[in-house]
Amino acid sequence: MKLKKYIVAIFYALSSTAVVSAQYKEPEKKDKIEALYPQVHFDSLQAKQKLAKGTATIKGIAFTKAKSKWGLKVGQRIYANQIKVTLFPVTPYLESWYTLRKEKESLRKRRYVYLSKNAYRYRLEAITNSDGEFTFPDMKPGKYFLQGFLGYTHNGTYNEYTGTGYNNYGGQTDYYQQKSYSVDHEDRIEAFVEVKEDGEIVRVNLH
C-alpha cells in the first residue's frame, strides 16, 4: 500500500514538471490589459488635510457634445443627467497620475493608468441634476481635479443601397432606402479648478 502511494506521488510530481517544461506553450494574448500606476509616493495625510472642511463652494455644469464621424465634438450641449462627479485633491501623486495617463494610456494598445486604492479613497462625490449642475460645498482654498463619465446615444440616418433598375432605353436607376442608426458613447469629462480664498464661489464647466 505504501509502495502504491509512493508511485502515485512520483507520477503527480512528474506530471506537474511536464506541464512547466512542455514542448508547446500557449503565448499570452496580445490584447491583455496593461495596468500602470504612478511611481510617486502618495501622502494620505496631505490628501486628508486638503479635503478638510472650509467655507468656499465649487459650482459647476457638466456636459459634452456629440462627436462627428471625424471625432470632433460639435452641435448642441448634452447635459449630464444624474451622473456622479468625483473630486480629488491635487497632490504630487495625482499630478504624476495625470501626466502618466496622458503619455501612456491608450485604448488601442489597451494600456490604462490607475490611481492606487489608497489614493482613490480620498475623494468627494456629487450627483448632477438633469441640467448637469453640481455643487461641492465646504471647500478649502487649494487645487482640485474633477472627473465624470457621461454616456449618451447618437442617433442618425443613412441611405442604404437596395438595388438598381433598368429602363427600355438602356438607362439605369439606383435605389436607396433611408435607415436609422444609433451609436452609444461614453465621454470622460474633467477639469482642474482652484479655490483661491475662503468664502468664494468658484464656477467651472466640466466637459
Score class of each variant (00 low, 15 high):
residue 2 K to H: 11
residue 2 K to T: 06
residue 7 I to F: 13
residue 7 I to L: 14
residue 10 I to D: 06
residue 10 I to N: 09
residue 11 F to L: 15
residue 11 F to D: 10
residue 12 Y to C: 09
residue 13 A to W: 11
residue 15 S to I: 09
residue 19 V to F: 15
residue 21 S to D: 09
residue 22 A to Y: 06
residue 22 A to Q: 10
residue 22 A to F: 08
residue 23 Q to D: 13
residue 24 Y to N: 03
residue 24 Y to D: 05
residue 25 K to A: 14
residue 26 E to H: 12
residue 27 P to N: 09
residue 30 K to Q: 11
residue 30 K to G: 09
residue 31 D to M: 09
residue 32 K to M: 12
residue 32 K to H: 13
residue 34 E to H: 14
residue 35 A to H: 15
residue 37 Y to R: 06
residue 38 P to E: 05
residue 39 Q to I: 09
residue 40 V to M: 12
residue 43 D to G: 09
residue 46 Q to M: 08
residue 47 A to N: 04
residue 48 K to E: 08
residue 49 Q to D: 10
residue 50 K to W: 00
residue 53 K to H: 04
residue 54 G to M: 01
residue 56 A to K: 00
residue 58 I to F: 00
residue 58 I to M: 03
residue 60 G to V: 02
residue 61 I to C: 11
residue 61 I to D: 05
residue 62 A to I: 04
residue 63 F to A: 10
residue 63 F to H: 05
residue 64 T to M: 11
residue 64 T to A: 12
residue 65 K to E: 13
residue 67 K to G: 07
residue 68 S to E: 11
residue 69 K to C: 06
residue 69 K to P: 04
residue 71 G to P: 09
residue 73 K to N: 12
residue 75 G to W: 13
residue 80 A to G: 14
residue 80 A to S: 08
residue 81 N to M: 04
residue 86 T to A: 07
residue 89 P to F: 00
residue 89 P to G: 01
residue 92 P to T: 01
residue 92 P to N: 05
residue 94 L to F: 11
residue 96 S to W: 04
residue 96 S to C: 05
residue 96 S to V: 03
residue 98 Y to F: 14
residue 98 Y to W: 14
residue 101 R to Y: 15
residue 101 R to M: 13
residue 102 K to G: 12
residue 102 K to A: 15
residue 105 E to F: 11
residue 107 L to T: 13
residue 107 L to E: 14
residue 107 L to V: 13
residue 108 R to Q: 14
residue 108 R to F: 12
residue 109 K to M: 12
residue 109 K to R: 15
residue 109 K to L: 13
residue 112 Y to T: 14
residue 114 Y to G: 07
residue 114 Y to W: 12
residue 115 L to S: 06
residue 120 Y to T: 14
residue 122 Y to K: 04
residue 125 E to F: 00
residue 125 E to V: 03
residue 129 N to L: 03
residue 130 S to P: 01
residue 130 S to N: 10
residue 133 E to M: 05
residue 133 E to Y: 07
residue 134 F to A: 04
residue 134 F to S: 02
residue 137 P to H: 02
residue 140 K to H: 02
residue 140 K to C: 00
residue 141 P to A: 02
residue 142 G to N: 00
residue 143 K to V: 01
residue 143 K to L: 01
residue 145 F to E: 04
residue 146 L to F: 04
residue 150 L to D: 06
residue 150 L to A: 09
residue 151 G to W: 11
residue 153 T to Q: 12
residue 154 H to E: 14
residue 155 N to M: 07
residue 156 G to P: 02
residue 159 N to A: 06
residue 160 E to K: 07
residue 162 T to N: 09
residue 164 T to Q: 13
residue 166 Y to P: 01
residue 168 N to M: 11
residue 168 N to L: 07
residue 168 N to T: 08
residue 170 G to T: 08
residue 174 D to S: 12
residue 174 D to K: 08
residue 176 Y to Q: 11
residue 176 Y to I: 08
residue 177 Q to E: 08
residue 178 Q to K: 14
residue 178 Q to N: 15
residue 179 K to G: 08
residue 182 S to W: 10
residue 183 V to F: 09
residue 184 D to G: 10
residue 185 H to M: 12
residue 185 H to A: 13
residue 186 E to L: 10
residue 186 E to W: 05
residue 188 R to F: 10
residue 189 I to Q: 06
residue 189 I to V: 13
residue 191 A to S: 06
residue 193 V to L: 06
residue 193 V to W: 02
residue 195 V to F: 02
residue 196 K to G: 01
residue 197 E to I: 01
residue 198 D to Q: 00
residue 204 V to K: 03
residue 204 V to E: 00
residue 206 L to V: 02
